[in-house]
Design a protein around this nucleic acid. Structure first.
Lengths: 173, 173
DNA sequence: GGACAATTGTTGTCGTCAACAACAATCTTT
DNA sequence: AAAGATTGTTGTTGACGACAACAATTGTCC
């Protein structure tokens, strides 16, 4: 019921809702400086996961900013590096992205000489995907930075919680 | 090293990468039907969280399709319902969305008579946000459907795992 | 062998969403 | 009163998912 009085404080920000003790005497009621209560969202997994996903992606992007690699690009290179010769369809299905989207991703990676498309001899519709020599050495550096990012995650939610989370979500690969 | 010969097959789909036992006899080695190996992504929390977040949002959208309410709209209405009179800035900061984005969200909700903007008397820059009468009754229905969605999540990852996950991510509210 | 269906890569559009920048109106500060 | 900050608004950009169409190629079926 009266979860309205439920106080809580934002991590960083300060809410200034409708009315608060300004100079015009009409000061707020006692609910003046209540923080925004939304226990209402507490039991929703999707909300927590969304916020966490935003945080984790921002940290990934920031940690890999020096090499200008985004999460999706990293996942594409990782899959190709582990499975050279894969077709675009195979990579797209594996990562759950559309082949149309993968085209642009590969365009960018190929432009940077990290990945190459090779015409498959057995099926002339397919492009076999490989990392270039530069792509392989670069990927090793990306993986070091990604490992640093994972340490940030462990610092944020706890080392054991991170492993628990990986275990819980292992069915999503 | 020679993971190049690594062949693979998708979980549901069939990958047709560079070469496989087609009519041209050059059949694969014994490692023929290995799935697409990307243990490389196994230890990455961000990837699992992203995939899970996509799944959970799609289920939310599908479960609330009858009422045409998306996750962000639901979170906005829930926060306003729990904290009537909040300003747009307060809601935006609370939900971690930009005030520019909230403008369009509120436009849609206001057009559907679910939310109303009221000029704040104490600060004429602010709009105090309230649910309409229809908005409150609708929100109750949305919450019932959202609870059904949460049950889907519990079925997917397990009841106890869902609660474990909520606990781990509680710091993201 | 040849018609027909399916697949692959590509291009395009549309809508969602985060990130920024600019602006007018308003409030705060000095 | 002047300068600075805040709020709501509009706009742009880019990443991303979804979908539709297309040419080239392959598989299938008669």
């Amino acid at each position: 019921m009266a979860n309205r009085a439920a106080p809580l404080r934002l991590t960083s920000a300060n809410a200034k809702p409708a009315g608060r003790p300004t100079r015009n005497g009409k000061a707020r009621r006692e609910d003046a400086d209540r923080e925004v209560g939304l226990d209402a969202l507490a039991g929703h997994a999707g909300y927590a996961v969304r916020r966490f996903q935003i945080w984790i992606f921002q940290d990934f992007i920031k940690t890999l900013a020096a090499v200008d690699i985004r999460p999706t690009q990293y996942s594409v290179m990782t899959v190709i590096g582990a499975n050279p010769g894969l077709s675009q369809m195979a990579v797209a299905k594996r990562l759950g992205i559309e082949r149309a989207r993968l085209v642009h991703l590969l365009d960018g990676l190929e432009r940077r000489k990290l990945v190459k498309r090779v015409q498959s001899p057995s099926d002339r519709r397919c492009h076999a995907l490989y990392l270039t020599a530069q792509g392989e050495t670069s990927l090793r550096q990306f993986k070091r930075l990604a490992a640093e990012h994972e340490r940030h995650v462990a610092e944020k939610i706890g080392k054991e919680n991170r492993e628990r989370l990986l275990h819980i979500l292992s069915c999503f690969t």
